[in-house]
Design a protein around this nucleic acid. Structure first.
Lengths: 214, 214
DNA sequence: GTCTATATCCTGATAGAC
DNA sequence: GTCTATCAGGATATAGAC
């Protein structure tokens, strides 16, 4: 019996393949591709090292199979958020909510994404390009459109829709990607549910107040 | 003859030690600690592999010696920005300017920082803690104070000074850390001076409008 | 201080028995 | 499908001649 879990990975404790995927997700999120060891993933999944190669062929393939479904799940979540709203400010709120909802179920995701960002280019093409540009209505274009609409209707007072999208993503992703440093730099626990809710509220307020005309 | 360069590293083309540091900075920023090879750094610096160990002992020590001075330079820059202003909104603008000025001279810095963030904990203690908490007046406390002042004087309408600091850092750092992905996701060139100036303007407007009362 | 050569360890991956 | 044993390559690091 197979079950879809919040990580987007097929999860079934009795299925070695899914145990490997879940262990890989945790390890890659924590140490990145180069820092992760297939031996460690195998041990963490409770399977033999040879099994990792039996099921996935190579470390690289395992990485792709680990990252791709979670990334797709996020984009689906964001797109339905965009599609279920009618005007710019509502959409903004809806998107941020969509992201934070996803986040509370996938707390390790931002770090995995940031590894992908900083290691830039190596797997970007293979994993992300086919998803991001599957057709014209995919997420980046939809988000830019949204802000452009807000600008056209004079609801948003900014010049560049792209800068706005980047800011939205930055405000949502950064704190959770950089949680280790924030945890000892400021008196916060980025892992806590309390912080997550406080952050969600702050981001919404900052964006709405910062982008809309007075 | 030794000369302080914009990277904060001692730069002198005839000095092998500084050539290694500069090469290490570039390589670590691009590939992170685990992804970098001492052989590659040596070759890039035009010195023999053995020289890297002769001067720095180990890869880890080289990493520390590479990251620390640049990080210190940034904090110095930010602190003088905070000290040279008198009221919260002016300070906000001054800090963002300070960061972007530093950035235009050290374009690789954000990626190096993000590697440090995601690999969290391994070198954080060793490199950052002694600098960040050298005394009570160091940067994190100063920044939080600044926003607290703005809140107390009813200039800022937010609740949490810490959330504001995190947002400011996120808006400044993220685009340059994630430049590879942004470069192919949106029609921008994050490396360009034009983008940097547009970003600087956008961040200042968003923060000032988003945080101050109407 | 700078080189060559090499030690030592570790990693991803596979061969082959069961 | 699962295990043990092992390979081949590559990594950091060092020994020792010059």
């Amino acid at each position: 019996m197979k079950k879809r879990e919040t990580t987007g990975l097929i999860s079934d404790a009795s299925d070695p393949r899914s145990r490997i995927l879940n262990a890989a997700f945790k390890t890659f999120a924590e140490k990145g591709f180069d820092g992760s060891r297939t031996r460690e993933i195998a041990a963490s999944a409770g399977v033999n090292l040879a099994m990792v190669h039996y099921y996935f062929g190579s470390k690289e393939e395992l990485y792709v199979k680990t990252v791709q479904p979670v990334f797709i799940e996020l984009l689906d979540r964001l797109e339905s958020a965009v599609n279920e709203c009618s005007e710019p400010v509502e959409c903004l709120s809806s998107i941020v909510d969509g992201y934070f909802d996803f986040l509370s179920k996938n707390p390790d995701f931002p770090r995995l994404m940031m590894w992908e960002q900083v290691s830039g280019g190596r797997y970007l093409e293979k994993i992300f390009k086919p998803i991001l540009f599957a057709d014209e209505s995919r997420t980046p274009a939809r988000l830019t459109q949204l802000f452009q609409q807000g600008i056209d209707s004079k609801v948003f007072i900014i010049d560049s829709p792209v800068q706005a999208v980047i800011s939205m993503v930055a405000l949502c992703v950064f704190p959770f990607a950089a949680r280790h440093m924030l945890n000892f730099t400021f008196p916060v626990s980025v892992n806590d549910q309390d912080f997550l809710e406080e952050r969600r509220q702050h981001v919404k307020e900052l964006l709405i107040q910062g982008l809309t005309s007075r």
